[in-house]
Design a binder for these strands. Sequence first.
DNA 1: AAATATATATCGCTA
DNA 2: TAGCGATGTATATTT
Lengths: 233, 233
Amino acid sequence: MSDAAFLADPSPAEAADALRDADDRAVALYGACELAYDGRATSTLPVGRRHVLHKPDGTLLAHAATGHQPVNWLAPGATLSVSVEDDELRLHGERDGETLDCRFTHVSHVSLLPLDDADAEVSGTEDDLRERVLADPDLISEGFRPLATERDTAAGPVDIYGEDADGTRVVVELKRRRVGPDAASQLDRYVDALARDLHADAAVRGVLVAPSVTDRARHLLAEAGHDFVPLTP
Amino acid sequence: MSDAAFLADPSPAEAADALRDADDRAVALYGACELAYDGRATSTLPVGRRHVLHKPDGTLLAHAATGHQPVNWLAPGATLSVSVEDDELRLHGERDGETLDCRFTHVSHVSLLPLDDADAEVSGTEDDLRERVLADPDLISEGFRPLATERDTAAGPVDIYGEDADGTRVVVELKRRRVGPDAASQLDRYVDALARDLHADAAVRGVLVAPSVTDRARHLLAEAGHDFVPLTP
DNA sequence: AAATATATATCGCTA
DNA sequence: TAGCGATGTATATTT
Protein backbone atom coordinates (compact mmCIF):
# COMPACT_ATOMS: atom_id res chain seq x y z
CA MET A 1 0.00 0.00 0.00
CA SER A 2 1.10 3.57 -0.68
CA ASP A 3 2.51 5.71 2.08
CA ALA A 4 0.77 8.48 3.89
CA ALA A 5 0.91 11.88 2.21
CA PHE A 6 -0.06 15.37 3.27
CA LEU A 7 -0.90 18.43 1.23
CA ALA A 8 -1.11 21.90 2.75
CA ASP A 9 -3.24 24.55 1.03
CA PRO A 10 -3.75 22.57 -2.17
CA SER A 11 -5.49 24.01 -5.16
CA PRO A 12 -8.90 22.47 -5.86
CA ALA A 13 -7.32 20.53 -8.73
CA GLU A 14 -4.53 19.21 -6.51
CA ALA A 15 -7.04 18.14 -3.88
CA ALA A 16 -9.10 16.40 -6.53
CA ASP A 17 -6.01 14.59 -7.82
CA ALA A 18 -5.17 13.46 -4.31
CA LEU A 19 -8.64 11.98 -3.89
CA ARG A 20 -8.36 10.18 -7.22
CA ASP A 21 -4.90 8.82 -6.35
CA ALA A 22 -5.94 7.63 -2.91
CA ASP A 23 -5.95 3.92 -3.83
CA ASP A 24 -6.59 2.05 -0.62
CA ARG A 25 -5.88 5.02 1.57
CA ALA A 26 -8.43 7.00 3.48
CA VAL A 27 -8.60 10.69 2.64
CA ALA A 28 -9.00 13.34 5.30
CA LEU A 29 -9.98 16.80 4.12
CA TYR A 30 -10.10 19.97 6.15
CA GLY A 31 -11.69 23.09 4.81
CA ALA A 32 -14.88 25.07 4.41
CA CYS A 33 -17.70 23.33 2.68
CA GLU A 34 -21.42 23.29 2.16
CA LEU A 35 -23.18 19.97 2.64
CA ALA A 36 -26.34 18.59 1.12
CA TYR A 37 -27.79 15.18 1.82
CA ASP A 38 -30.75 13.62 0.13
CA GLY A 39 -32.14 10.14 0.53
CA ARG A 40 -33.88 8.75 3.57
CA ALA A 41 -34.42 12.37 4.53
CA THR A 42 -33.19 15.72 3.27
CA SER A 43 -30.66 17.96 4.97
CA THR A 44 -28.56 20.95 4.03
CA LEU A 45 -25.81 22.76 5.88
CA PRO A 46 -24.39 26.19 5.04
CA VAL A 47 -20.68 26.66 4.42
CA GLY A 48 -18.61 25.98 7.49
CA ARG A 49 -15.28 24.53 8.51
CA ARG A 50 -15.53 20.75 8.62
CA HIS A 51 -13.45 17.64 8.82
CA VAL A 52 -14.34 15.21 6.04
CA LEU A 53 -13.11 11.62 5.99
CA HIS A 54 -13.47 9.29 3.05
CA LYS A 55 -12.62 5.63 3.67
CA PRO A 56 -11.61 3.12 1.02
CA ASP A 57 -14.85 1.20 1.60
CA GLY A 58 -16.83 4.22 0.46
CA THR A 59 -17.75 5.54 3.89
CA LEU A 60 -18.01 9.32 3.86
CA LEU A 61 -18.07 11.20 7.16
CA ALA A 62 -18.39 14.96 7.66
CA HIS A 63 -17.70 16.12 11.19
CA ALA A 64 -18.51 19.46 12.78
CA ALA A 65 -17.28 20.83 16.11
CA THR A 66 -19.36 18.69 18.44
CA GLY A 67 -20.93 15.31 18.82
CA HIS A 68 -20.05 11.70 18.38
CA GLN A 69 -22.08 11.54 15.23
CA PRO A 70 -21.02 13.00 11.89
CA VAL A 71 -23.13 15.98 10.87
CA ASN A 72 -23.60 14.29 7.48
CA TRP A 73 -22.48 10.96 6.13
CA LEU A 74 -22.84 8.10 3.71
CA ALA A 75 -22.65 4.51 4.86
CA PRO A 76 -20.05 2.04 3.57
CA GLY A 77 -20.47 1.07 -0.07
CA ALA A 78 -20.96 4.55 -1.44
CA THR A 79 -19.19 5.60 -4.61
CA LEU A 80 -17.45 8.95 -4.72
CA SER A 81 -17.20 11.30 -7.69
CA VAL A 82 -14.70 14.13 -7.55
CA SER A 83 -14.77 17.23 -9.68
CA VAL A 84 -13.68 20.85 -9.81
CA GLU A 85 -16.27 23.41 -10.82
CA ASP A 86 -16.02 27.19 -10.58
CA ASP A 87 -12.59 26.59 -9.07
CA GLU A 88 -14.18 24.67 -6.20
CA LEU A 89 -13.61 21.09 -5.13
CA ARG A 90 -16.81 19.08 -5.18
CA LEU A 91 -17.47 15.66 -3.83
CA HIS A 92 -20.54 13.72 -4.81
CA GLY A 93 -21.17 10.48 -2.93
CA GLU A 94 -23.91 8.11 -3.93
CA ARG A 95 -25.24 4.94 -2.44
CA ASP A 96 -28.51 3.15 -2.89
CA GLY A 97 -30.47 6.24 -3.88
CA GLU A 98 -28.84 8.42 -1.26
CA THR A 99 -26.52 11.26 -2.14
CA LEU A 100 -24.19 13.51 -0.21
CA ASP A 101 -22.66 16.54 -1.86
CA CYS A 102 -19.77 18.53 -0.45
CA ARG A 103 -18.96 21.83 -2.07
CA PHE A 104 -15.66 23.13 -0.75
CA THR A 105 -15.22 26.88 -0.93
CA HIS A 106 -11.75 26.34 0.43
CA VAL A 107 -9.55 23.32 1.07
CA SER A 108 -6.95 23.88 3.71
CA HIS A 109 -5.45 20.44 4.02
CA VAL A 110 -5.62 17.00 2.45
CA SER A 111 -4.16 13.82 3.95
CA LEU A 112 -3.86 10.41 2.33
CA LEU A 113 -3.86 7.90 5.15
CA PRO A 114 -3.23 4.18 4.99
CA LEU A 115 -5.43 2.71 7.71
CA ASP A 116 -5.36 -0.81 9.12
CA ASP A 117 -8.55 -2.65 9.65
CA ALA A 118 -9.19 -4.33 12.93
CA ASP A 119 -12.00 -6.11 14.63
CA ALA A 120 -12.03 -5.08 18.23
CA GLU A 121 -12.47 -7.97 20.60
CA VAL A 122 -15.32 -6.78 22.72
CA SER A 123 -16.35 -8.48 25.91
CA GLY A 124 -19.20 -7.70 28.21
CA THR A 125 -21.79 -8.24 25.50
CA GLU A 126 -25.07 -10.08 25.60
CA ASP A 127 -23.26 -13.20 24.40
CA ASP A 128 -21.09 -13.09 27.50
CA LEU A 129 -24.16 -12.79 29.65
CA ARG A 130 -25.61 -15.86 27.98
CA GLU A 131 -22.44 -17.87 28.56
CA ARG A 132 -22.60 -16.96 32.18
CA VAL A 133 -26.20 -18.09 32.56
CA LEU A 134 -25.54 -21.35 30.73
CA ALA A 135 -22.54 -22.01 32.96
CA ASP A 136 -24.67 -21.48 36.07
CA PRO A 137 -28.36 -21.99 35.25
CA ASP A 138 -29.31 -21.68 38.92
CA LEU A 139 -28.90 -17.94 38.39
CA ILE A 140 -32.31 -18.08 36.69
CA SER A 141 -33.91 -20.17 39.38
CA GLU A 142 -33.04 -23.18 41.51
CA GLY A 143 -33.02 -26.23 39.24
CA PHE A 144 -33.48 -24.40 35.92
CA ARG A 145 -32.37 -26.54 32.97
CA PRO A 146 -31.49 -24.85 29.66
CA LEU A 147 -32.75 -26.84 26.69
CA ALA A 148 -31.81 -24.61 23.78
CA THR A 149 -30.44 -21.21 22.79
CA GLU A 150 -31.90 -19.18 19.96
CA ARG A 151 -34.90 -21.50 19.88
CA ASP A 152 -37.17 -20.46 17.06
CA THR A 153 -40.73 -19.33 17.68
CA ALA A 154 -43.30 -17.56 15.53
CA ALA A 155 -42.14 -14.34 17.15
CA GLY A 156 -38.47 -14.97 16.53
CA PRO A 157 -35.60 -16.77 18.23
CA VAL A 158 -35.62 -16.94 22.01
CA ASP A 159 -32.35 -16.22 23.85
CA ILE A 160 -32.57 -19.22 26.18
CA TYR A 161 -35.34 -21.79 26.34
CA GLY A 162 -35.49 -24.25 29.20
CA GLU A 163 -37.36 -25.99 31.97
CA ASP A 164 -38.10 -25.11 35.55
CA ALA A 165 -37.46 -27.34 38.55
CA ASP A 166 -41.14 -28.30 38.36
CA GLY A 167 -41.17 -28.84 34.60
CA THR A 168 -42.62 -25.49 33.57
CA ARG A 169 -41.30 -24.20 30.26
CA VAL A 170 -39.24 -21.05 30.58
CA VAL A 171 -38.33 -18.31 28.11
CA VAL A 172 -35.29 -16.28 29.13
CA GLU A 173 -34.60 -12.91 27.54
CA LEU A 174 -31.16 -11.43 28.18
CA LYS A 175 -30.25 -7.76 28.22
CA ARG A 176 -26.82 -6.41 29.09
CA ARG A 177 -28.20 -3.01 30.13
CA ARG A 178 -30.98 -1.64 32.23
CA VAL A 179 -34.22 -2.35 30.39
CA GLY A 180 -37.32 -0.35 29.58
CA PRO A 181 -40.79 -1.20 28.28
CA ASP A 182 -39.51 -2.42 24.92
CA ALA A 183 -37.71 -5.38 26.46
CA ALA A 184 -40.78 -6.31 28.51
CA SER A 185 -42.90 -6.32 25.35
CA GLN A 186 -40.31 -8.36 23.52
CA LEU A 187 -40.31 -11.03 26.23
CA ASP A 188 -44.08 -10.99 26.19
CA ARG A 189 -44.16 -11.65 22.45
CA TYR A 190 -41.81 -14.60 22.85
CA VAL A 191 -43.78 -16.13 25.73
CA ASP A 192 -47.05 -15.80 23.81
CA ALA A 193 -45.55 -17.33 20.70
CA LEU A 194 -43.99 -20.23 22.56
CA ALA A 195 -47.18 -20.98 24.46
CA ARG A 196 -48.94 -21.34 21.12
CA ASP A 197 -46.13 -23.32 19.54
CA LEU A 198 -46.36 -25.85 22.35
CA HIS A 199 -50.03 -26.18 23.17
CA ALA A 200 -52.96 -23.95 23.82
CA ASP A 201 -52.84 -24.79 27.52
CA ALA A 202 -49.09 -24.97 28.02
CA ALA A 203 -47.85 -22.83 30.89
CA VAL A 204 -44.82 -20.76 29.88
CA ARG A 205 -42.87 -18.63 32.29
CA GLY A 206 -41.01 -15.55 31.09
CA VAL A 207 -37.79 -14.41 32.71
CA LEU A 208 -36.04 -11.15 31.93
CA VAL A 209 -32.36 -11.08 32.89
CA ALA A 210 -30.76 -7.64 33.08
CA PRO A 211 -28.78 -5.44 35.47
CA SER A 212 -31.93 -3.52 36.38
CA VAL A 213 -35.33 -2.46 35.12
CA THR A 214 -37.31 0.79 34.94
CA ASP A 215 -40.54 1.18 36.88
CA ARG A 216 -42.72 1.08 33.82
CA ALA A 217 -41.03 -2.06 32.54
CA ARG A 218 -41.32 -3.67 35.96
CA HIS A 219 -45.02 -2.94 35.90
CA LEU A 220 -45.42 -4.49 32.46
CA LEU A 221 -43.52 -7.57 33.55
CA ALA A 222 -45.62 -7.95 36.69
CA GLU A 223 -48.86 -7.57 34.74
CA ALA A 224 -47.87 -10.27 32.32
CA GLY A 225 -46.67 -12.49 35.16
CA HIS A 226 -43.04 -12.54 34.07
CA ASP A 227 -40.06 -12.61 36.38
CA PHE A 228 -37.08 -10.33 36.60
CA VAL A 229 -33.65 -11.63 37.55
CA PRO A 230 -31.02 -8.96 38.25
CA LEU A 231 -27.70 -9.88 36.70
CA THR A 232 -24.86 -7.65 35.51
CA PRO A 233 -22.58 -8.77 32.67
CA MET B 1 -10.33 31.22 17.73
CA SER B 2 -6.84 30.09 16.77
CA ASP B 3 -6.01 29.16 13.22
CA ALA B 4 -5.55 25.70 11.84
CA ALA B 5 -2.09 24.20 12.26
CA PHE B 6 -0.41 21.10 10.93
CA LEU B 7 2.57 19.17 12.23
CA ALA B 8 4.35 16.55 10.17
CA ASP B 9 6.30 13.82 11.95
CA PRO B 10 6.17 15.48 15.36
CA SER B 11 8.04 14.10 18.31
CA PRO B 12 5.81 12.63 21.02
CA ALA B 13 6.44 15.75 23.10
CA GLU B 14 5.51 18.06 20.21
CA ALA B 15 2.33 16.10 19.59
CA ALA B 16 1.46 16.31 23.27
CA ASP B 17 2.06 20.06 23.25
CA ALA B 18 -0.20 20.43 20.24
CA LEU B 19 -2.99 18.59 22.02
CA ARG B 20 -2.57 20.77 25.10
CA ASP B 21 -2.58 23.95 23.02
CA ALA B 22 -5.64 22.96 21.04
CA ASP B 23 -7.98 25.40 22.81
CA ASP B 24 -11.29 25.20 20.97
CA ARG B 25 -9.84 23.38 18.00
CA ALA B 26 -10.38 19.75 17.18
CA VAL B 27 -7.23 17.63 16.97
CA ALA B 28 -6.74 15.03 14.28
CA LEU B 29 -3.94 12.53 14.82
CA TYR B 30 -2.62 10.02 12.36
CA GLY B 31 -0.24 7.30 13.44
CA ALA B 32 0.12 3.82 14.83
CA CYS B 33 -1.53 3.19 18.13
CA GLU B 34 -2.87 0.56 20.46
CA LEU B 35 -6.37 1.10 21.79
CA ALA B 36 -8.00 -0.04 24.99
CA TYR B 37 -11.56 0.73 25.99
CA ASP B 38 -13.15 -0.12 29.29
CA GLY B 39 -16.54 0.83 30.57
CA ARG B 40 -19.86 -0.41 29.28
CA ALA B 41 -17.84 -3.20 27.72
CA THR B 42 -14.16 -4.01 27.35
CA SER B 43 -12.21 -3.93 24.13
CA THR B 44 -8.58 -3.89 23.08
CA LEU B 45 -6.98 -3.42 19.69
CA PRO B 46 -3.37 -4.18 18.80
CA VAL B 47 -1.14 -1.51 17.31
CA GLY B 48 -2.33 -0.37 13.92
CA ARG B 49 -2.55 2.76 11.80
CA ARG B 50 -5.57 4.79 12.83
CA HIS B 51 -7.13 8.18 12.46
CA VAL B 52 -7.95 9.68 15.84
CA LEU B 53 -10.11 12.77 16.22
CA HIS B 54 -10.56 14.69 19.45
CA LYS B 55 -13.25 17.37 19.49
CA PRO B 56 -13.40 20.34 21.84
CA ASP B 57 -16.51 18.89 23.48
CA GLY B 58 -14.50 15.88 24.60
CA THR B 59 -15.62 13.49 21.90
CA LEU B 60 -12.85 11.02 21.05
CA LEU B 61 -13.11 8.96 17.87
CA ALA B 62 -10.65 6.34 16.62
CA HIS B 63 -11.27 5.24 13.05
CA ALA B 64 -9.88 2.19 11.25
CA ALA B 65 -10.02 1.42 7.53
CA THR B 66 -13.68 0.53 7.25
CA GLY B 67 -17.09 1.29 8.59
CA HIS B 68 -19.21 4.25 9.51
CA GLN B 69 -18.60 3.60 13.14
CA PRO B 70 -15.35 4.40 14.97
CA VAL B 71 -13.51 1.29 16.08
CA ASN B 72 -13.26 2.83 19.56
CA TRP B 73 -14.65 6.03 20.96
CA LEU B 74 -15.77 8.12 23.92
CA ALA B 75 -18.96 10.12 23.82
CA PRO B 76 -19.07 13.91 24.25
CA GLY B 77 -18.16 15.14 27.72
CA ALA B 78 -15.04 13.07 28.15
CA THR B 79 -11.92 14.65 29.59
CA LEU B 80 -8.60 13.99 27.91
CA SER B 81 -5.24 13.53 29.61
CA VAL B 82 -2.10 13.71 27.49
CA SER B 83 1.27 12.36 28.46
CA VAL B 84 4.54 11.06 27.07
CA GLU B 85 5.87 7.83 28.54
CA ASP B 86 8.73 5.68 27.21
CA ASP B 87 8.97 8.24 24.41
CA GLU B 88 5.40 7.43 23.35
CA LEU B 89 2.42 9.72 23.12
CA ARG B 90 -0.43 8.53 25.31
CA LEU B 91 -3.98 9.71 25.41
CA HIS B 92 -6.26 8.84 28.27
CA GLY B 93 -9.90 9.76 27.91
CA GLU B 94 -12.35 9.40 30.73
CA ARG B 95 -16.07 9.91 31.03
CA ASP B 96 -18.54 8.65 33.52
CA GLY B 97 -16.54 5.58 34.49
CA GLU B 98 -15.55 4.81 30.93
CA THR B 99 -11.96 5.06 29.72
CA LEU B 100 -10.26 4.97 26.36
CA ASP B 101 -6.49 4.73 26.16
CA CYS B 102 -4.48 5.35 23.02
CA ARG B 103 -0.81 4.42 23.08
CA PHE B 104 0.90 5.77 19.99
CA THR B 105 4.02 3.92 18.94
CA HIS B 106 4.38 6.49 16.21
CA VAL B 107 2.70 9.79 15.40
CA SER B 108 2.90 10.71 11.76
CA HIS B 109 0.77 13.82 11.67
CA VAL B 110 -1.12 16.15 13.97
CA SER B 111 -3.66 18.75 12.86
CA LEU B 112 -5.29 21.46 14.92
CA LEU B 113 -8.62 22.21 13.27
CA PRO B 114 -11.08 24.99 14.09
CA LEU B 115 -14.48 23.49 13.33
CA ASP B 116 -17.80 25.24 13.07
CA ASP B 117 -20.82 23.80 14.70
CA ALA B 118 -24.00 23.42 12.77
CA ASP B 119 -27.40 21.91 13.24
CA ALA B 120 -28.49 20.33 10.03
CA GLU B 121 -32.05 21.17 9.05
CA VAL B 122 -33.50 17.76 8.42
CA SER B 123 -36.80 17.19 6.73
CA GLY B 124 -38.61 13.94 6.23
CA THR B 125 -38.74 13.13 9.94
CA GLU B 126 -41.55 11.79 12.07
CA ASP B 127 -42.50 15.37 12.96
CA ASP B 128 -43.10 16.08 9.28
CA LEU B 129 -45.29 13.01 9.07
CA ARG B 130 -47.32 14.26 12.03
CA GLU B 131 -47.78 17.68 10.44
CA ARG B 132 -49.07 16.00 7.34
CA VAL B 133 -51.60 13.91 9.22
CA LEU B 134 -52.79 16.90 11.26
CA ALA B 135 -53.21 18.91 8.08
CA ASP B 136 -55.31 16.16 6.53
CA PRO B 137 -56.81 13.94 9.25
CA ASP B 138 -58.87 12.03 6.70
CA LEU B 139 -55.64 10.21 5.88
CA ILE B 140 -56.28 8.22 9.07
CA SER B 141 -59.92 7.57 8.28
CA GLU B 142 -62.91 9.47 6.94
CA GLY B 143 -63.97 11.95 9.60
CA PHE B 144 -61.08 11.42 12.02
CA ARG B 145 -60.66 14.35 14.43
CA PRO B 146 -57.32 14.88 16.17
CA LEU B 147 -57.78 15.97 19.80
CA ALA B 148 -54.21 16.09 21.04
CA THR B 149 -50.60 15.32 20.21
CA GLU B 150 -48.21 13.75 22.69
CA ARG B 151 -51.16 12.94 24.93
CA ASP B 152 -49.85 11.39 28.12
CA THR B 153 -50.82 7.90 29.17
CA ALA B 154 -49.47 5.49 31.76
CA ALA B 155 -47.46 3.89 28.96
CA GLY B 156 -46.03 7.15 27.70
CA PRO B 157 -47.06 9.95 25.34
CA VAL B 158 -49.21 9.04 22.33
CA ASP B 159 -48.26 10.58 18.97
CA ILE B 160 -51.79 11.59 18.02
CA TYR B 161 -54.94 11.06 20.02
CA GLY B 162 -58.33 11.65 18.48
CA GLU B 163 -61.85 10.58 17.66
CA ASP B 164 -63.35 8.50 14.89
CA ALA B 165 -66.30 9.56 12.75
CA ASP B 166 -68.46 7.44 15.06
CA GLY B 167 -66.91 8.76 18.27
CA THR B 168 -64.50 5.92 18.95
CA ARG B 169 -61.27 7.01 20.59
CA VAL B 170 -58.22 6.53 18.41
CA VAL B 171 -54.53 6.20 19.19
CA VAL B 172 -52.25 6.97 16.26
CA GLU B 173 -48.62 5.88 16.27
CA LEU B 174 -46.42 7.38 13.57
CA LYS B 175 -43.29 5.84 12.08
CA ARG B 176 -41.29 7.33 9.24
CA ARG B 177 -39.84 3.94 8.28
CA ARG B 178 -41.09 0.46 7.60
CA VAL B 179 -42.01 -1.04 10.95
CA GLY B 180 -41.43 -4.35 12.68
CA PRO B 181 -42.87 -6.07 15.75
CA ASP B 182 -41.48 -3.46 18.14
CA ALA B 183 -43.74 -0.74 16.75
CA ALA B 184 -46.79 -3.03 16.91
CA SER B 185 -46.04 -3.73 20.58
CA GLN B 186 -45.57 -0.06 21.27
CA LEU B 187 -48.96 0.81 19.78
CA ASP B 188 -50.49 -2.02 21.75
CA ARG B 189 -49.10 -0.65 25.01
CA TYR B 190 -50.51 2.78 24.25
CA VAL B 191 -53.95 1.47 23.36
CA ASP B 192 -54.09 -0.64 26.52
CA ALA B 193 -52.98 2.24 28.68
CA LEU B 194 -55.45 4.69 27.16
CA ALA B 195 -58.33 2.24 27.47
CA ARG B 196 -57.59 2.08 31.19
CA ASP B 197 -57.10 5.80 31.52
CA LEU B 198 -60.55 6.40 30.07
CA HIS B 199 -62.77 3.64 31.36
CA ALA B 200 -62.65 -0.08 31.79
CA ASP B 201 -65.11 -0.51 28.96
CA ALA B 202 -63.95 2.24 26.63
CA ALA B 203 -63.32 1.12 23.09
CA VAL B 204 -59.99 2.39 21.78
CA ARG B 205 -58.85 1.89 18.25
CA GLY B 206 -55.14 1.71 17.42
CA VAL B 207 -53.78 2.98 14.13
CA LEU B 208 -50.21 2.52 12.99
CA VAL B 209 -49.10 4.96 10.30
CA ALA B 210 -45.94 4.02 8.40
CA PRO B 211 -44.68 3.49 4.86
CA SER B 212 -45.08 -0.28 5.27
CA VAL B 213 -45.05 -3.18 7.77
CA THR B 214 -43.32 -6.52 7.99
CA ASP B 215 -45.42 -9.70 7.96
CA ARG B 216 -44.84 -10.42 11.61
CA ALA B 217 -45.81 -6.92 12.61
CA ARG B 218 -48.90 -7.09 10.42
CA HIS B 219 -49.92 -10.26 12.23
CA LEU B 220 -49.44 -8.66 15.62
CA LEU B 221 -51.52 -5.67 14.58
CA ALA B 222 -54.30 -7.87 13.19
CA GLU B 223 -54.38 -9.99 16.35
CA ALA B 224 -54.73 -6.94 18.54
CA GLY B 225 -57.34 -5.47 16.20
CA HIS B 226 -55.30 -2.43 15.23
CA ASP B 227 -55.30 -0.80 11.83
CA PHE B 228 -52.45 0.00 9.51
CA VAL B 229 -52.44 3.09 7.32
CA PRO B 230 -49.72 3.22 4.67
CA LEU B 231 -48.18 6.67 4.45
CA THR B 232 -44.71 7.75 3.41
CA PRO B 233 -43.15 10.92 4.83
C1' DA C 1 -32.47 -9.04 -0.25
C1' DA C 2 -35.50 -8.92 3.82
C1' DA C 3 -36.36 -9.30 8.68
C1' DT C 4 -35.08 -9.13 13.28
C1' DA C 5 -32.51 -7.78 17.31
C1' DT C 6 -28.18 -5.75 19.34
C1' DA C 7 -25.20 -1.70 20.41
C1' DT C 8 -19.75 0.86 24.50
C1' DA C 9 -25.60 2.77 20.16
C1' DT C 10 -26.22 8.55 20.26
C1' DC C 11 -29.37 12.34 20.74
C1' DG C 12 -33.09 15.15 22.34
C1' DC C 13 -36.90 15.94 25.25
C1' DT C 14 -39.57 15.79 29.42
C1' DA C 15 -40.86 15.06 34.16
C1' DT D 1 -30.92 13.15 36.52
C1' DA D 2 -33.46 9.28 34.71
C1' DG D 3 -36.69 7.60 31.59
C1' DC D 4 -38.35 7.23 27.12
C1' DG D 5 -38.57 7.18 22.21
C1' DA D 6 -36.57 8.74 17.51
C1' DT D 7 -32.61 8.20 14.50
C1' DG D 8 -30.85 9.52 7.46
C1' DT D 9 -29.43 5.17 13.48
C1' DA D 10 -25.17 1.23 12.03
C1' DT D 11 -24.14 -3.59 12.38
C1' DA D 12 -24.51 -8.54 12.63
C1' DT D 13 -27.09 -12.70 11.92
C1' DT D 14 -30.32 -15.51 9.90
C1' DT D 15 -33.74 -16.72 6.45
